[in-house]
Design a binder for these strands. Structure first.
Lengths: 203, 203
DNA sequence: GTCTATACATCGATAGAC
DNA sequence: GTCTATCGATGTATAGAC
């Protein structure tokens, strides 16, 4: 059981982290300052040190929080029994999540803060989300680690291109399903899904 | 004809830009300060304003310079008459260029400096390099603009994954040729290259 | 064209009163 | 637990002497 004091503290930390995301959305993840964050939650800047040992500790909390948001989204999915369809849904969820908040995307999937590395505890959340993608790829017959790497990189490429060039459009991301089809058709070992065309052998 | 004074000035600007790249490599593109840059070329910080109106103007000069480096590399290529081989060589050159200097890659291909947008003159260099890639894709039979977009995004995804996770390795980039083969096999309209397998029709 | 000096702002972090 | 006050560092940019 958690004491009321500790619980109140947790709530306050959550409030601060939520406000930090608001500011990051407005000014970029790198433009987040403790001064403005404190004012946003009705405090002065030094008071934040009651809740975070340093700015990096705040970033770490945000990193964990963002990944928990992603996991919640992924865990809530009802995936098709068809592995290929499940893979598409999983990846689409990933893409949508990444694009709906550039600042969050930057903190979670890039290294935008010099000197900041997530703690092992926080990184574990990120690893879980990635493991889910690997599982869906395996189920769809993508078993070679290289093929897994490349498929995830391909999805990352779509996200990056979309966000850099047209943050609110779908010029790149609308091709996600088609590219997954191509990829699975070419590299799936088991062909669990109905193949509508022949596939190309690995050399 | 350019006067000696203007020429000397150009040389000095080039020296400063070269030193700026050195510092960016050492401290990150965002960690570049005018103070340290000035000291690196034997000046004091205010003197730099004789050559650049602002820090953004310096970034713009670096942006143009980096893209000129890339264009020089691409223009020096002797491309195979086989369009598919030419495409691979072009993209490989692009990938190698991006990976050999993360700071340069960040300035040229991402938006790492809040508020900095390259000028139209500087951006024209970048556009030329990208146009070359589009031409090579067209020659290889990738004509649909969507397919062109996706292939470039795919290459970008390999670069991003490689640089984020393993800057000096080739876990992702070694699959460049194989992915290009897959892509051309699936999406080429003209099949100029010998196709070793059937291809998948677009829906 | 380069310098010294400085204005002016922002930031993270700490000390210590309450 | 929150505050005021402040330290110390860094940063861009400008004024004005030489």
């Amino acid at each position: 059981m958690i004491g009321k004091v500790a619980q109140r503290r947790e709530t306050k930390v959550a409030t601060i982290v939520a406000a930090a995301w608001d500011l990051a959305r407005a000014n970029g993840i790198g433009g987040l300052s403790l001064h403005s964050l404190a004012r946003a939650v009705g405090m002065r800047q030094p008071s934040l040190y009651e809740y975070f040992d340093s700015k990096h500790a705040l970033y770490d909390e945000m990193f964990a929080d963002g990944n928990r948001q992603l996991l919640a989204r992924l865990d809530a999915l009802t995936l098709s029994p068809d592995p290929r369809a499940a893979l598409k849904t999983y990846m689409r969820t990933f893409v949508d999540f990444a694009l709906e908040d550039p600042a969050r995307c930057a903190l979670l999937f890039q290294r935008p803060i010099p000197g900041f590395e997530p703690s092992a505890e926080s990184y574990a959340y990120a690893a879980r989300a990635l493991d889910g993608a690997v599982d869906r790829l395996h189920a769809a017959g993508i078993e070679d680690p290289s093929d897994v790497d490349c498929c995830i990189a391909l999805v990352g490429g779509l996200i990056e291109a979309q966000m850099s060039n047209e943050p609110n459009g779908d010029r790149w991301t609308r091709h996600l399903d088609r590219l997954i089809d191509m990829y699975v058709d070419n590299f799936s070992k088991s062909q669990l899904s109905p193949a509508k065309s022949s596939r190309r052998k690995r050399q």
